[in-house]
Amino acid sequence: MVHPYAVAGFLVAVLPLVATPGASLALLIRHVIDSGRRQALPVILGTVTGLYIHATLAIAGLSALVMESSLAFSAVKLIGAVYLIGLGIWTWRSAAPNAAPSPYRPRLPKGADSVYAQALLANVLNPKAAAVYLTLVPQFVAPRQSFGGQILALATAHALLITLWLAVWSFLALRASHTLHRPRFKRAAAKATSAVLITLGIRSAVA
């Protein structure tokens, strides 16, 4: 079992990363504004699932292989960047006033348009999230104890921190629900979200 001081130190170290606006927060605000508080849960669950996937890959050593191979790492970065940019473009186009289903309206592949899938893929395809478990987590594990158990414990602490952070933002969005549900504001929020996603994708591609 990981030492409580190690968990506390890890949370302090990872807090700036959690607090930095990213795809999960952008998706949360977008979907809460668009469809209400129920959409916060799938965003949180998708993000948390992504964290556990990264933790599992780190335990198995698969993430280390990707990080050590410049070609594999570049491929992951490119896939993640393309996904974020594509999601951003789709969000922008879907925010058009009086948008209605038509053969010309952009759609995500079947299954990929679920809120949970969007949050999951945004996290899994983020190589920086994998880097947390390959560079930061090892600083807080004891070599003489269960390596896998300690990583899962830190991942759980990480997941709880992100859940709390996103829940707070969901609450703030709901407090302003009267303003947020105005059609003009919803369109502006959707376009702002798409701009964030596209910016994150471009930054990931060129970093």
Rank of each mutant, 00 (worst) to 15 (best):
V132H: 03
V132A: 03
Y133C: 00
Y133Q: 02
L134E: 09
L134H: 09
T135A: 14
L136E: 05
L136M: 13
L136T: 10
V137A: 06
P138C: 05
P138G: 07
Q139F: 07
F140L: 08
V141D: 00
V141Q: 04
V141Y: 01
A142R: 11
A142S: 13
P143E: 08
P143D: 09
R144W: 14
R144L: 14
R144V: 12
R144M: 13
R144C: 10
Q145K: 12
S146V: 05
S146W: 08
F147G: 08
F147I: 09
F147M: 11
F147Y: 14
F147Q: 11
F147P: 02
F147A: 09
F147H: 13
G148L: 08
G149M: 10
G149T: 11
Q150D: 03
Q150V: 05
I151W: 01
L152R: 03
L152F: 15
L152H: 06
L152T: 06
A153F: 02
A153E: 08
A155K: 03
A155Y: 05
A155T: 04
A155L: 02
A155G: 06
T156Y: 02
T156P: 01
A157R: 05
H158F: 13
H158Q: 07
A159F: 04
L160H: 08
L160M: 15
L161F: 01
T163P: 01
T163M: 05
T163N: 00
T163D: 02
L164E: 00
L164G: 11
W165K: 01
W165P: 01
W165G: 00
L166T: 00
A167L: 13
V168L: 12
V168C: 09
V168P: 02
V168A: 09
V168N: 05
W169C: 03
S170V: 02
S170Y: 02
F171H: 09
F171Q: 10
F171V: 12
F171C: 08
L172W: 07
L172Y: 06
L172C: 12
A173I: 03
R175E: 07
R175K: 13
R175I: 07
A176T: 10
A176D: 07
S177H: 13
S177M: 11
S177K: 12
S177V: 12
H178G: 10
T179M: 14
T179R: 15
T179F: 14
L180R: 09
H181I: 09
P183G: 07
P183T: 10
R184W: 12
F185M: 13
F185D: 03
A188Y: 10
A189H: 02
A189W: 01
A189L: 10
A189E: 03
A189V: 14
K191P: 06
K191V: 15
K191Y: 12
T193N: 08
T193C: 15
T193V: 10
